[in-house]
Amino acid sequence: MGLITISDHIHDIAENSINAKAKNVKITIKETDDKFYFSVEDDAGGIRPEILEKIFDPFVTTRKKEIRRVGLGLPFLKQATELTGGYTKINSEIGKGTKVEALFYKSNIDCQPVGDLIGTFFTLLLNSSVNWEIERCLNEECYVVTSESIKTYLGEIDSPQKMMVLKELIEELENSIKT
């Protein structure tokens, strides 16, 4: 699984939304010098209460046993956030969707590195079966990228050239908040 960076966790939670058949996923990232907060919110229909109460148990998964016998992503996320003094929260409503929130304190010696956010965003945005909204803030600077805005500017991402332009766009947006 290799959840060694915060961006790995974001990708893992977003993949959970995809696997749960979400049509719309919103990722929010608010980063400061000391804190890294993210949320992943979907409209996939929610998590049943009997699963939600055991969601951080590594032996609980909603996937077929032939596919995955254990679910380690959420327990690893919870452990990683709590090691820094942060938290992981999950709110879910049947018929509506699920929101996973996580807070890391970056100054804590146990905080994982942020990792490759650009690569994570790029990979997720290539999945055209989901309407994505990604809001990324670094201190007071923010940007938002959506599936709709990408389609407006690039059309369908159906060639290596368009994939390259998309990656460059995400890099430019990320660089714009770092200056």
Score class of each variant (00 low, 15 high):
K65C: 04
E66M: 04
T84E: 07
L124P: 04
V60H: 02
R136Y: 15
L117F: 09
N91F: 11
Y87P: 08
G115F: 03
S129V: 14
R68P: 00
G71E: 01
W132K: 09
F59C: 08
G95P: 09
S128Y: 06
L124K: 13
L103C: 14
A102H: 08
T81V: 11
D110N: 15
K89E: 15
F104H: 03
G71T: 00
T98W: 09
R69P: 01
I67G: 03
R136D: 13
Y105E: 14
F59K: 09
R136L: 13
L74Y: 02
V114Q: 09
K64C: 08
F104S: 07
I109V: 14
K78N: 08
N131A: 15
G115K: 04
V100A: 08
P58R: 00
F76V: 00
K99A: 04
K96G: 05
T98F: 07
E66Q: 09
I90C: 06
L83Q: 10
K89Q: 12
T84I: 14
T61C: 06
Y105D: 13
L103E: 05
W132A: 06
I109D: 15
E133H: 12
I94W: 05
I109G: 07
E101L: 13
S92W: 04
P113M: 05
E133F: 06
L74I: 01
V70G: 01
F122G: 05
V130W: 14
V100H: 04
K96E: 14
G95I: 05
K106M: 11
V100Y: 09
